[in-house]
Design a protein around this nucleic acid. Structure first.
Lengths: 236, 236
DNA sequence: GTCTATGTTCTACTAAAGTCGTATGGCATG
DNA sequence: CATGCCATACGACTTTAGTAGAACATAGAC
């Protein structure tokens, strides 16, 4: 399986596939599909390093340790990463790391918006291993990849949605966590218990969130975020 | 009642339709399109009576006076009738009156759900006068009408959405009005001012709404309703 | 007519939300 | 190492949200 180079180059173009040691991270809370991805990676990039996580926080911690990750494969729906928000946060924190979305949701609008928010690819979970490999290979070369039928139909994302994404991206990690619970209709007291801090602190975070989003109460926050939500997935 | 002429031609204007006197109501806050509909009706059903309104409350008042209305043409988006909620309320209050949705929104999912919530037809605003006539004619005969391309692809509405619609339908008119403002992120004080009653009364209504919807606070209400919202229309 | 049932309205109360000021610790810059 | 910046955390206060209970009106039912 070839020799490996410790000193990984910054430029993928130099590296032939067999000789390259890539650094992947697979973030998906669904074990079956995570394994499917791992199979593909191990088969085609046996010398690569693969981080794994089941929620957004773990993924971010791992990326912080490995800031040279070559490709993040991110599920659209896992704890802390509903809809496009996880993608937005990761793109903000690690602009240089390419992010491929993997999701059961094959809706054209969803794929289009994921790409518009900075994903370098979108892999529907129904794809064959061969297709998954094609996609990963393409993205490691610095190109974008979407399912064939959408190749020529990508359109720019609504500017209002872009604005909102930019505001979300300014939230601190803790603020973002609080917002995730707020969005689900939790009370401040409940959020505080969940995060292990007092209700007073939750309120402080929430006030800060409102300022950043340009709103004045939680109801408006939910309204604002719901405008950015995607179609519901099919429960599999 | 009923029309006896099934022969449709391009200049059929004065055939046996002229002998029947239908009762229409056109509810649309966009004057241009309201007039377009009126043109079609006056041309093909010159003896008919046509009520008009620019918001849901006026429409309902008119329907109460004319409980034998043969067809209500309802815009999806006007004051008091965002998304499918207006349709749901009207179908609950007047189950015997056929409702045709007219809207600029031509999304298949939107059309499908409107039909699933009891509309007898869906007329995209891009339709020609001739097509509008075809649609109205079909619906007056008791048949349903949707754009050709969707004729065979209507699917049942999600049961959860049906449940929610049933709950919404139990709201009193005033409760529904309050809910419309709540949904937009207004404060109780503001809603009270708008409706000309005290904040205390708004609160009482809101508590009643929560009970009917099976929730405990306004944030959950917004979340619940947002699951039922449609794709945003293009602003024309 | 009386008697229910229901919608609307309100007062008085409790609970939750939201703001302000402040303190601490990490971390980068000069 | 001193300084400033910022994320995080908390307590005290004010404002808004939400509940309980009752008064009043109206429409049917008996």
């Amino acid at each position: 399986m070839g020799d490996t180079d410790d000193r990984l180059g910054y430029d993928m173009a130099f590296q032939s596939e067999s000789a390259s040691m890539y650094h992947f991270h697979v973030a998906d809370d669904h074990p079956l599909f995570r394994n499917a991805i791992l199979e593909v990676i191990k088969r085609h990039y046996p010398d690569s390093v693969v981080g794994q996580s089941m929620d957004l926080d773990s993924a971010i911690r791992d990326l912080e340790k490995n800031d040279e990750t070559d490709l993040l494969l991110l599920d659209l729906h896992m704890p802390g990463s509903q809809d496009l928000f996880g993608l937005i946060m990761v793109r903000e924190k690690f602009p240089s790391i390419p992010v491929a979305i993997i999701s059961a949701d094959e809706d054209a609008d969803t794929i289009n918006r994921a790409m518009g928010h900075g994903a370098c690819g979108y892999i529907p979970k129904s794809c064959s291993p061969q297709t998954i490999y094609d996609a990963i290979h393409t993205m490691l070369n610095g190109d974008r990849w979407v399912p064939d039928e959408l190749h020529n139909s990508l359109t720019p994302v609504d500017s209002e949605e872009k604005d909102l994404a930019a505001k979300i991206a300014t939230l601190t990690p803790q603020q973002y966590r609080v917002l995730c619970y707020l969005r689900e209709g939790w009370l401040n007291k409940q959020i505080g218990y969940e995060l292990g801090i007092t209700e007073a602190t939750i309120k402080a975070h929430i006030t800060a969130i409102f300022r950043k989003l340009g709103i004045t109460n939680r109801t408006q926050a939910v309204i604002m975020l719901s405008k950015m939500s995607l179609k519901d997935d099919v429960v599999s």
